[in-house]
Design a binder for these strands. Structure first.
Length: 569
RNA sequence: GGGCGAGUAGCUCAGUUGGUUAGAGCAGAGCGCUCAUAACGCUUUGGUCGCAGGUUCGAGUCCUGCCUCGCCUACCA
């Protein structure tokens, strides 16, 4: 038994996330967590909302709520939606928790003590009408390079040129449109990542097995141009973790908070602490402090590619700089983007499928299956309604669902509501198990390496074996001359269904549970150690009820309606 | 501009350290079955492996150049 710590990137609080966010971290993390748990490992799966920063404040203003209330409500919403997708978090915390405030301040104090922070004076735009400092991207103006009138302060979207906000001609606040902007002098704390460059490089260089995507992004940032840059970790905002040193306000930083990117990763630790305190245990240290047991923990992070620099560099720099025994990540699984019908998901243009809508129109397992079997592991992946309809109807409805229906209806009609007890299996059953065992080994191998797409293919191949078996065994014609043999075939088919309901659980947990309920199978699911010895683990008491169709097909007209409805404004 | 990745069947992709006739799923065609959500099974048609050179007994795989596409480039999280 191993101890496995799993975190999925913190979803930002400013709204409901879309399918791309889901497949970029929470969903694959959930597959891994479920698999590792089923294998008998001790798993701790942690996530939290990322609540600080300008977008959160603006979203609250937009909803005419206080930012505290807004975050509270949105945390509830996001939690509920994650539950709706059967994401099996052990704890879903908040980056605004008391624990995170304390830990963030703790880390900052240590970094200061060890000389990894410095105070830097800089100039920043302040909007008088908005009464706030504006991040670069919240300033709009004319691009000095191409003349595009809606260039942002960080970059011109039209000509892709990198900009400073002061480069813009006729700048205005993106928030209010106000042109009453002034440049003010302000002071910020910088994390001196550059001093830790060698340490980070040595650490990353040893991670031979990390995905190319993860390593190449980290290396790029380390070695690009002048190398790893220092990074401002405070902001002129009110909502966030107050800048403090050893519990006392930091002189000159009374009206500032830490930058979300500083406090968000620390929230992995803080959320574990929340979990610990809610459960009245002190276990969080066993997961996070290496000389208190965490050295035996295998820690895996899941995230989309935008998050990779912060998890490979900034957060490890924070940990290294603290000179304390915090657990570092062992493996980072990064994902590319999910596209929607060839373009980007867009919150503002209402383009694409958002998690709440998704749950309203199709069951969670439909989405889980499509997203996981098409996970953007090697490149950006395109969601299309055609593909979704085709994949669900074929894989879930035809291959798996229909297999279950044909076995169940046959058995129910011929032998009543009990699974036949005859279990003297012959050559065909042996061959079938051997065939499945080969696929199963591959399946397990892919799951342990977190190769989600490939794992899903092997799982599907195992479903196909069920149909192949039935076709060869033909219980419907055997029944006419040898009822006993027909019962054996039927029982073996139920055995396969039982098997499927165990091993498919990481991908389609809801359906697996439904299957087990209908066929009187025990709730507790154990991951078979190999299939050759598990010919039959059904009891003679299994009472079946006829399930409704497990996977109703997606019709052409449904597809067309949704295609049209979510194509954007 | 720089960096990374990709280009393989109509579509989506797999191809381990270079090794016989390049694979899967979907889509197409034919046959079979009738338990089943007109579902399933079997067979089968599709490929100058982006282009041009090179190394090698042998290249989808290695090297060079080129073309096309995607992503990243630090204040969006």
């Amino acid at each position: 038994m191993k101890k496995i710590l799993i975190t999925s990137a913190l979803p930002y609080i400013n709204g409901i996330k879309h399918l791309g966010n889901l497949i970029g971290s929470q969903l694959p993390a959930d597959v891994y967590a479920r698999y590792m748990r089923a294998k008998g490992n001790k798993v701790l799966f942690i996530c939290a909302t990322d609540e600080h920063g300008t977008p959160a404040e603006l979203a609250a203003i937009d909803k005419k709520e206080t930012v505290e209330n807004f975050c509270e409500n949105m945390w509830n919403t996001q939690k509920k939606i994650a539950d709706g997708f059967f994401i099996s978090f052990d704890y879903f915390g908040r980056s605004s928790s008391k624990q995170n405030h304390e830990l963030t301040q703790h880390f900052a104090s240590k970094l200061w003590e060890n000389g990894y922070l410095e105070e830097v004076n800089e100039k920043q735009f302040f909007s008088i009408e908005d009464n706030r400092y504006l991040p670069d991207r919240y300033i709009t103006g004319t691009c000095p390079s191409c003349g595009y009138e809606k260039a942002r302060g960080d970059q011109c979207e039209n000509c892709t040129k990198q900009l400073q906000p002061t480069d813009l001609i006729d700048p205005s606040s993106t928030i209010s449109g106000s042109k009453k902007l002034e440049i003010r002098q302000t002071k910020h704390l910088y994390l001196k990542q550059s001093k830790l460059k060698k340490k980070l490089n040595d650490w990353i260089s040893k991670k031979d097995n990390w995905p190319i995507l993860t390593k190449s992004i980290a290396k790029k940032w380390l070695h690009d141009e002048e190398g790893l840059k220092d990074r401002g970790i405070t902001r002129d905002l009110s909502w966030g973790v107050k800048v403090a040193n050893s519990g006392k306000p930091w002189k000159g930083f009374e009206n500032k908070v830490f930058y979300v990117w500083f406090d968000a990763p620390i929230a992995y630790i803080a959320a574990t602490k929340e979990w610990s305190e809610k459960n009245f245990n002190k276990e969080w240290k066993n997961w996070w402090i290496t000389d208190q047991g965490a050295d035996k923990v295998y820690y895996v992070q899941f995230m989309a590619k935008d998050n990779i620099p912060f998890h490979t560099l900034s957060f490890p720099a924070t940990i290294f700089g603290s000179r304390e025994n915090w657990k570092l990540v062992d493996y980072i699984k990064g994902f590319n983007w999910l596209l929607y019908e060839g373009g980007k998901f867009s919150t503002s243009e209402k383009r694409g499928i958002f998690m709440d809508v998704a749950l309203k129109i199709f069951p969670a397992d439909y989405w889980r299956w499509w997203l996981l079997s098409n996970a953007p592991e090697n490149s950006d992946t395109n969601f299309t309604w055609d593909s979704f309809q085709n994949t669900i109807n074929k894989d879930l409805a035809d291959v798996l669902g229909n297999f279950i229906t044909r076995v169940t209806k046959f058995s129910f009609a011929k032998f009543g509501s009990k699974i036949p007890s005859n279990n003297v299996y012959g050559d065909l059953e042996t061959k079938t198990i051997n065939e499945l065992d080969k696929l199963y080994e591959r399946y397990n191998n892919f799951l342990s390496k977190i190769e989600i797409r490939k794992a899903s293919q092997e799982l599907r191949n195992m479903w196909v074996v069920g149909n192949e078996y039935l076709q060869k065994a033909q219980p419907w014609s055997i029944l006419k001359k040898d009822e006993d043999k027909a019962k054996i075939i039927t029982r073996f088919s139920f055995h396969l269904i039982n098997l499927y309901s165990l091993i498919s659980e990481p991908f389609i947990p809801d359906t697996c549970q439904k299957i087990r309920n209908h066929f009187g199978l025990p709730k507790k699911s154990e991951w078979p150690e190999g299939l050759k010895n598990s010919f039959d683990n059904l009891t003679n008491k299994n009472d079946i009820s006829l399930p409704d169709i497990l996977f109703p097909k997606i019709t052409d007209s449904e597809k067309e309606i949704f295609q049209d409805k979510y194509s954007g404004s």
